[in-house]
Computed example of a mutant assay.
Amino acid sequence: MPVDAEPPEPPTLDAVDPNEYEDAEVVGDTDYRREEIEALLADGAWAQAFDDWAAETDLDDAGFAIVRDLEMLQHFDFFWDGFADRVGYHAPGIPEDWKERDLHPDLESWGTVSAINAGLTELGQRVCEVLYDDYIDWESEYDAPDDLPDFDD
Results as ranks from 00 to 15, higher is better:
Val3Gly: 08
Ala5Leu: 05
Ala5Arg: 15
Pro10Lys: 10
Thr12Asn: 12
Tyr21Ser: 06
Glu22Ile: 03
Glu22Thr: 01
Asp23Arg: 08
Ala24Met: 08
Glu25Pro: 03
Val27Thr: 08
Val27Met: 05
Thr30Tyr: 00
Tyr32Trp: 09
Arg33Tyr: 01
Ala39Phe: 06
Leu40Lys: 03
Leu41Glu: 00
Trp46Tyr: 01
Trp46Arg: 00
Ala47Asn: 08
Ala47Trp: 05
Phe50Lys: 08
Asp51Asn: 14
Trp53Cys: 14
Ala55Tyr: 04
Ala55Ser: 11
Ala55Ile: 02
Glu56Phe: 06
Asp58Ala: 14
Leu59Ser: 07
Asp60Pro: 06
Phe64His: 07
Phe64Arg: 02
Asp69Cys: 09
Leu70Asp: 13
Asp77Leu: 03
Asp77Glu: 07
Phe78Met: 01
Asp81Arg: 02
Phe83Asp: 02
Phe83Lys: 04
Arg86His: 04
His90Pro: 00
Ala91Pro: 03
Ala91Arg: 04
Pro92Tyr: 06
Ile94Thr: 00
Ile94Glu: 01
Glu96Leu: 11
Trp98Arg: 01
Lys99Gly: 05
Lys99Ser: 12
Glu100Trp: 10
Pro105Arg: 10
Pro105Ile: 13
Leu107Ala: 03
Glu108Phe: 07
Trp110Cys: 07
Trp110Phe: 13
Gly111Tyr: 11
Ser114Asn: 14
Gly119Ser: 07
Thr121Met: 09
Leu123Glu: 00
Gln125Ala: 15
Arg126Met: 11
Arg126Trp: 04
Cys128Gly: 08
Val130Ser: 03
Asp133Lys: 11
Asp133Tyr: 08
Tyr135Ala: 15
Asp137His: 08
Asp137Gln: 12
Glu139Ser: 02
Tyr142Phe: 15
Tyr142Cys: 10
Asp143Glu: 15
Pro145Ile: 02
Pro145Ala: 04
Leu148Glu: 08
Asp150Gly: 02
Phe151Ser: 13
Asp152Thr: 15
Asp152Cys: 05
